[in-house]
């Protein structure tokens, strides 16, 4: 059996890669891709613990998480579209009207 620490490390690494993308990316679509990465990292975590406890709940829940991620991306794309219409650009660092 693969020790679960490896799975958790993989999940943490994937999460932090996604987080890196959120922190540095200017393009809104790439931002959304990074969010997807983070969601999938959580999925890996769920599956890993499903194996640890011998329970199917983790994997089932992972399925639902994926469906939710899809729904969220749909809305996210719609928001990016409205953002483009307002600011003529998908650059998130350009849309800074709600500031001090």
């Amino acid at each position: 059996m693969v020790p679960p620490q490896y799975y958790l490390l993989l999940s943490a690494a994937l999460f932090c890669i996604g987080l890196f993308g959120i922190l540095t990316r200017q393009n809104a679509l790439l931002f959304l891709m990074s969010v997807e990465l983070m969601l999938n990292a959580a999925n890996i975590n769920l599956v890993a613990f499903s194996l640890v406890w011998g329970n199917i709940t983790g994997q089932t829940f992972g399925l639902f998480t994926m469906a939710l991620a899809a729904a969220e991306v749909a809305i996210g794309i719609g928001i990016v579209l409205v953002l483009y219409r307002n600011f003529d650009d998908v650059d998130v660092t350009n849309a800074t009207t709600m500031r001090w």
Binding site: L19, I22, L23, Q26, T93, T96, T97, W100
Partner: peptide, 17 residues
């Protein structure tokens, strides 16, 4: 202190992290 609110999402994410 208010200059923390730059309006750019990335900066807020940095703070969260």
């Amino acid at each position: 202190m208010r200059r923390i609110q730059t309006g750019a999402v990335n900066d807020y994410a940095v703070l969260l992290t």
